[in-house]
Design a protein around this nucleic acid. Sequence first.
DNA 1: GCTAGAATGCAAACTTTTATACATTTGGGT
DNA 2: ACCCAAATGTATAAAAGTTTGCATTCTAGC
Lengths: 238, 238
Amino acid sequence: MIDLLQHGSPSLIDLISDELWRQLQAIGTVERYQDGQMIHMRGDEKPGITVVLDGRVMIGLQGSEGTFLTSSVMGRGQCFGEFTLFAGLPRTHDISAIGETQVLQIKGKPFLALFNAEPSLSHALLTINVYRTHGLLEFLDDLRRLPLPVHVAKFLLSMSESASNKKEIQCNQEVLAFNFGVSRISIGKALKKLEATGLIEVGYGKIAITDHPQLRRWVEQRCPVSALRASRVNSTSQ
Amino acid sequence: MIDLLQHGSPSLIDLISDELWRQLQAIGTVERYQDGQMIHMRGDEKPGITVVLDGRVMIGLQGSEGTFLTSSVMGRGQCFGEFTLFAGLPRTHDISAIGETQVLQIKGKPFLALFNAEPSLSHALLTINVYRTHGLLEFLDDLRRLPLPVHVAKFLLSMSESASNKKEIQCNQEVLAFNFGVSRISIGKALKKLEATGLIEVGYGKIAITDHPQLRRWVEQRCPVSALRASRVNSTSQ
DNA sequence: GCTAGAATGCAAACTTTTATACATTTGGGT
DNA sequence: ACCCAAATGTATAAAAGTTTGCATTCTAGC
């Protein structure tokens, strides 16, 4: 799954202890949603944290006539809503379910109470947000500095690391194009260019990385700084 | 000052109590740097938080040919280094002083101790990072969706709010161009277009907003959520 | 197997952006 | 008041990206 917020950032469930996770579940309520159902709407005033338990949620903005512009997609363990809690502002995005989805909904007050009592929870939240900030900054940097094919290659590498199948990334070119803010045609050209090196293979709704280490080297040679970071995620949980 | 990380996000000093600020100062050490002096280097392993006390710091990457590519500039009250603490990775950027600069350097261990004992500190840090994430996401969204002149206008508006002088933004076109990832020429054209509306005035190393509310309306007319491009980029399921 | 819908490939005309080069303007410093 | 480096304006060719339209390929579902 292609995503700017999620990619590279660890999940809340992975970052906290089983005990703390149980506590969170105790103060929250499980909600079930059908495919396409709205979970939150832009402008909602109720602050709270949501954790995806099962399925996926789509974060974006509802356009006119049912069109939806996605900013982010989150899967199991990912959480969102921190902005309503820590910035004290209403929801900035619409959030809806992809497929049958279960989420844990935790209201602002009980969450903050636990947050104040459990440093490991704030530690985990901070870790997530620090990774998100960092990932976004780096993506933006690359957007400004790298030619499209190189940037795409780098992104594919980093996606493949958090994917279930390391060799193959499940995404169509249109979604990819939107992430990079360019047209499908441009992405197509960039992918063709990469394919010509023999390091990736463009499929139908998927992209395969045929030679991982070689592609990494190819990207590193083309980055102005040796900017490809090791993706070592050591959860500093206590 | 033009900056993606800082703009819109509150400063640490503003977010915490005087008492907590004193405690932070007690466990940190004040360091002084001359203009251009290095404060941290990419790759440094020492984790810690730094708070700018006076002057400014430049966060960026040393390019291949001795050039410095700025990612961010931070002023009094802003803090950085959370990534070294909460992601457990070495410094990802070079950081150097702009002008005579004082910073409060707090080592990882004492900071985390205070962090664990004081929920208001973690609350403040989270607030900062949540704002940063949000600001970056929105900027990225605008980059993909808005024509350059509209995006520039929106950015100028948001900059002017955190500027010392609300009517005038101190920045040259080259810096602006880098922030948007386009050439100086493109920014120049966009600014000329905006100037033609009479809502801003382009000066030498500065941009003046002549009619704040009118410019705001001008931007809103051109990027309402309801009028987003009706592209079928994202279907409800994959 | 078929088939329909989705995804991709491709080409031509086009718009936008870039790079380059140079002229002009500005404003701080001596 | 002058000088000069920095910032901006402008022009043109080249490169990159977009739009449009349609052909082709793939795959899930019957």
